[in-house]
Structure formats: C-alpha cells, structure tokens
C-alpha cells in the first residue's frame, strides 16, 4: 500500500529529477568518453605471436610474498594521500 504522502513525495521527486536532467546533459557530464571506440577494450583473441621474446617466457614469476622483488612505482606514488589521522603520506596507503 502506498500512502498519499509518499505519492506526493514521489511525484515531487520525479518532477525535480526531470528538471535536473533537462538542464545539463548528464550523460556527457563527468563521464568517460571512449573516444577511440574501444580499441583498448576490444577482444584480444589473436592468431599472432608476441614479438618480444624476453617478457614472460624468460622472466621468473616464482611468487614468494616475502621475497617479492617488485615495488609499486606507478602514479600511486605521486598521489598525496591524507589519512584519517591527518598525516600526509606519499604513495602507499596503510589500511585504515
């Protein structure tokens, strides 16, 4: 059962939502445009071999968490992160 108050509130919300949508084109605002139409997201099934013969086949991926030799060096290291304790840190972010 829907009471009258809810019906009025619903109608007001829908009317307000329609107004908000008619203003800016919400579809393009704050949205990612895949300009190249999915070159990067296209399927990757291929019948070609990979050119470099030095990547995975020869690099040892024997994973030992303690001896993991790779350090994250990407953009996470450039983002200045403020934790809840107010301290600023560069790069890594300890779990809260």
């Amino acid at each position: 059962m829907i009471n009258r108050t809810t019906t009025v509130a619903l109608a007001a919300a829908v009317a307000a939502a329609a107004l908000m949508s008619s203003g800016a084109n919400a579809q393009t605002a704050n949205a990612d445009k895949e300009k190249c139409y999915g070159v990067s997201m296209a399927g990757k099934n291929d019948c070609a071999a990979t050119g470099s013969n030095s990547c995975a086949g020869t690099s040892k991926a024997d994973y030992d968490a303690k001896a993991w030799k790779y350090v994250a060096k990407g953009s996470c290291a450039k983002m200045e992160v403020t934790l809840k304790d107010g301290k600023k840190r560069m790069g890594t972010l300890a779990p809260m």
Binding site: E34, G38, A42
Partner: peptide, 29 residues
C-alpha cells in the same frame, strides 16, 4: 580502422575477423 573504413569505404575486396572477438552479447564490436 573500422570508423575510417565505414566513412571512406576503401577499395579492398573483403575483411576478415577473429571469431572470438565477436562472441560478446553486444556493444561496439
């Protein structure tokens, strides 16, 4: 190349695709 091909309609005989890249339900492919 696909957008260019649709616009320019180059003079080539035919096209080939890898079947597995067209096994999704929909979208740009």
């Amino acid at each position: 190349h696909q957008r260019h091909i649709l616009e320019a309609r180059p003079d080539v005989g035919w096209f080939e695709v890898h079947a597995e890249n067209y096994m999704g339900a929909g979208g740009p492919p």
